[in-house]
Write a protein that binds this DNA or RNA. Structure first.
Lengths: 250, 250
DNA sequence: GAGTGGTCTAGACCACGAA
DNA sequence: TCGTGGTCTAGACCACTCG
C-alpha cells in the first residue's frame, strides 16, 4: 500500500462511499466520533477532520449533543463543493466536452479587467473568446482575460484544445481559488451567432475570478450558458457556507 | 466581559477586522501561526481553527511551506457566506424588505414535493405563494411547500408578514442547512402578473431545500427573481486540504 | 445522567516553499 | 537550510441532546 493520502481523507472517503452505497441512508445516524476513532485506529481529532469535510459538503448535520445525521442528498448538477473546470465537470457527467477558440487578442486592460486581475490600468492582457460544447452542441460562450504571461500560453494552444486549464496545469499554472457571481443576461449579436440562438435570448451568466495557490489572480472570465444546459448547485448552512446574495448592480 | 464566543471565533473576528481595516492589504502576508498563537495567548490548534474560517470564506490562501496571503477582491467586509433569509439579507444591505402572501392552500404532495420533503407520496402539505419586495418594488415570487405541521404555522401568519422564517424561529422551527439550485426560467402568466413584467421574460430561479438542525426537511421552495435585482455569489477552492482542520462547523 | 459533539491544549513529526 | 503550514496524537473539560 503506497497510500500517500492523509488519514483523514481516507476516513472521509470511506464514509462518503458508505453513504453513497446506502449503508447510511438519508436520515440515518452516523457512528459516534469515538466509535469511528476506534474503528479506524486513529485519534478523535483525525475523525473530526474527516467529518468536517462531509459537513462542508452538506452530507451530514452536526450539532452538539446529538449524533450526526445523514442529509438527504440531491442530484448535483454544477456543484460548487469543488472547483472544477468545464471539461472535468462535463466528463464527470458522462458528457463529451469540446471547445473552439474563436479569438485570441492581446490588449490593454480596461479598468474593470485591471481591477479584477490586480494589474495596473492599461497593463497588457490577453482576451480569449471560446465556444464550449457538450457532445458537439454549443452550450456556452466563454470570454476570459488573462495576465500577459498566462495569456501567451493560452495563445499558443490549439484552437480546438478541450481543456485550457489542464494545459495550463502542465505549465505549472494552477487554479486553486475562485469567486463566482451568477445572474441572468440577454444574448447580444455575438452570443446569438456563437450559440445559435436569437439575440435577446436569456442566458445564464457566471463571472469568475480565479487565483493561483499564492493568491495571484490568473483569470477573469465571463461565461454565458444557454438555459437548460446547466444549473448551479450549492450548499450552505447557518453556521457558514458558500453562497451569498448581492444586489445586482455592477 | 461576558464573552460567550469561543476563542477561535474571537481570533477570527479580530483578523477579519484587521483585514477589512486594511492592516493586511491585498497580497499582504499574515503572521505565522506560532506568532498568532503567542500574540493571542492560545494554542496553535485554536489559531488554525480561526484561520480555517477565513480560508473557507476565501479571504486568505493557505499552502504548506508558505505564509498565508490575503486574497484581493475589494473590501468585502460583510461575509455573505451564511444562510440568511430574504428579509435578513435585504436589511443587511440597507434595503427595506416586504412580503405579501398571495395564496395559502393545503394540498396533497406531488411526487416531486414528497421526494424533496421526504414524505410519503400524497402526504398533506401546504403550498404558499408570496411576492417579495425591496423598498416596495416587487423583485421575486416565492412558491414554497411545507410539511403539514409547519404549513399550519405559516397559514396562521399575517398576509404582510415580512419574515416567515423569523416567525417560524419563534415557534422553534430552525432552518440550518439548505441546498440551492440556480438556473434561468421564463416567466409564466402568473409570474408576469405578480412581478409586473411580461410573460416570457427571463427570470433567475433558485430552488431550495431547507432542513432543520436534525436534518429533517422543513421547506421546498422555488424563488423567481427579476433580473438585475440580485446576483448570487459563491467562493470555492480546489486546494488540497483547504477546508477543515479539527473544526466542526464553519 | 449518560452519551455526544464543541472547544482547547501541548506536544510531535513531516512536506513543502523560499531564500 | 530553515521557517511554515499540514497532519496527528492523547489527553481534558464543557454544553448540549435525549431517553
Amino acid at each position: 500500500m503506497s497510500s500517500k493520502s492523509p488519514l483523514y481523507r481516507v476516513v472521509a472517503g470511506d464514509l462518503r462511499t458508505a453513504i453513497a452505497a446506502g449503508e447510511y441512508g438519508s436520515g440515518a445516524r452516523l457512528p459516534a466520533e469515538d466509535e469511528l476513532a476506534r474503528r479506524y485506529g486513529v485519534s478523535r481529532g483525525t475523525v473530526r477532520q474527516a467529518l468536517a469535510s462531509l459537513r462542508a459538503d452538506g452530507l451530514v448535520t452536526s450539532r452538539r449533543g446529538a449524533r450526526r445525521v445523514v442529509l438527504g442528498g440531491a442530484a448535483r448538477l454544477q456543484s460548487f463543493a469543488e472547483l472544477r473546470s468545464f471539461a472535468r465537470w462535463a466528463r464527470s457527467l458522462g458528457e463529451e466536452p469540446g471547445g473552439r477558440t474563436v479569438a485570441v487578442e492581446p490588449a490593454a486592460a480596461t479598468d474593470e479587467e485591471a481591477l479584477h486581475l490586480q494589474l495596473p490600468a492599461g497593463a497588457r492582457v490577453f482576451r480569449v473568446r471560446r465556444v464550449r460544447t457538450l457532445s458537439g452542441a454549443p452550450v456556452m460562450v466563454e470570454r476570459s482575460t488573462y495576465p500577459e504571461r498566462i495569456g501567451e500560453l493560452v495563445a499558443a494552444m490549439e484552437v480546438d484544445e478541450v481543456s485550457h486549464s489542464h494545459q495550463l496545469e502542465l505549465h505549472g499554472v494552477l487554479f486553486t481559488d475562485a469567486q463566482h457571481t451568477i445572474d441572468v443576461v440577454l444574448a447580444d449579436a455575438d452570443d446569438a451567432e456563437l450559440l445559435g440562438c436569437r439575440a435577446g435570448h436569456a442566458l445564464l451568466r457566471e463571472r469568475r475570478r480565479s487565483t493561483d495557490p499564492a493568491g495571484s489572480p490568473v483569470e477573469w472570465s465571463e461565461d454565458r450558458y444557454l438555459p437548460g444546459t446547466v444549473a448551479f448547485t450549492v450548499h450552505n448552512s447557518a453556521a457558514a457556507g458558500a453562497l451569498g446574495r448581492q444586489l445586482g448592480e455592477e
